[in-house]
């Protein structure tokens, strides 16, 4: 099984008529994802390579019954697009937009929690989600993923996610689902959401977790793992040598004072029984070894 999405997930793309939306939306469809509609205000009635475009999410949902949305719009419009998706009946929203103001993210996250408790937001500023062979929403290259499980991946970083997928796939180890939760300060979905979903998924036998400096989500995940996780977890944390006070590319990747260091995260995860590795290659190998021993 997969988490959050499967082969029946029907997807609309908000921003399908834009350059990025078109590129990734069509790639997702080519992968086999059921991309059923696009939404661009003012472009309703047109189509993108046969995918019908609607003016609003509500119209697209009414016409297609879609349950998921892929939000690919510029930062000034992203918060509005996410809320429109929830209001239009979408229950799973993937937003890849990088550069959304933190104030907008904080308001959007809390509005979703308060007004639409059944809606899950993945991202913003994330690579998306891929369940190999079933569904790919986002910008992950489907070529580097391998269907059939048994590994679940959850990651704060895009390229390191691809790296993890690749290292496992070349050694013949498949994935159930790979979730990129994104590097922003207010992620809609966090490590614990994904770990608990993987724990509950019978086909996922082990989980690879890729974290980075900033915030305390990894420490909270470690706490959760201690009490709830029965499946083996391998972790890698980027940013051991990052200087304090600097945003390392991602808006959320910053060591504030003495908080958010890679060392503290690695220590917390080790204490929770997680196999913590020093670089992505070592983490990939550790997971291959674990899978071989299952």
């Amino acid at each position: 099984m997969s988490i959050f999405v499967d082969e029946n997930t029907t997807v609309i793309v908000q921003g399908l008529t834009g350059g990025q939306g078109r590129f990734h939306g069509l790639r997702n469809r080519d992968y086999g994802t059921r991309v059923v509609a696009g939404v661009t205000p003012g472009k309703g009635g047109s189509d993108v390579e046969g995918i019908p475009v609607y003016n609003t999410v509500r119209e697209a949902v009414d016409a297609t019954g879609a349950t998921a949305s892929f939000v690919v719009v510029p930062p000034p419009f992203a918060a509005g697009a996410i809320m429109e998706a929830a209001e239009g009946g979408i229950t799973f929203i993937v937003c890849i937009t990088e550069g959304i103001p933190a104030q907008d993210e904080a308001v959007t996250y809390n509005r979703l929690v308060e007004e639409f408790p059944g809606v899950r937001l993945l991202g913003p500023n994330c690579p998306g989600i891929i369940s190999p062979g079933k569904c790919n929403i986002g910008i992950t290259s489907g070529d580097i993923a391998l269907a059939g499980g048994p590994v679940g991946i959850v990651s704060r970083s895009g390229t390191l996610t691809y790296q993890a997928l690749y290292e496992l796939s070349v050694q013949g180890v498949g994935q159930t689902t790979c979730v990129g939760i994104g590097g922003d300060p207010v992620p809609g979905t966090n490590f614990i959401d994904c770990l608990s979903a993987f724990e509950a998924d019978p086909e996922t036998k082990a989980v690879m977790m890729i974290g980075e400096i900033g915030g305390s989500e990894e420490e909270r995940a470690a706490e959760w793992i201690t009490h709830h996780m029965t499946k083996p977890v391998v972790a890698y944390i980027a940013g051991v040598t990052a200087p304090p006070g600097r945003k390392m590319g991602h808006a959320g990747a910053i060591i504030s004072g003495s908080k958010g260091t890679a060392q503290a995260k690695m220590a917390a995860l080790s204490a929770a029984g997680v196999r913590v590795c020093q670089n992505p290659t070592e983490a990939g190998q550790a997971m291959v070894d674990i899978v071989a021993s299952l």
């Binding site: 895009g158 790296q163 590319g249």
Partner: peptide
């Protein structure tokens, strides 16, 4: 490097 995570990882 391409990607913030990979760039950080490269420094490490």
């Amino acid at each position: 490097a391409n990607g913030a995570g990979l760039a950080m990882s490269t420094l490490d």
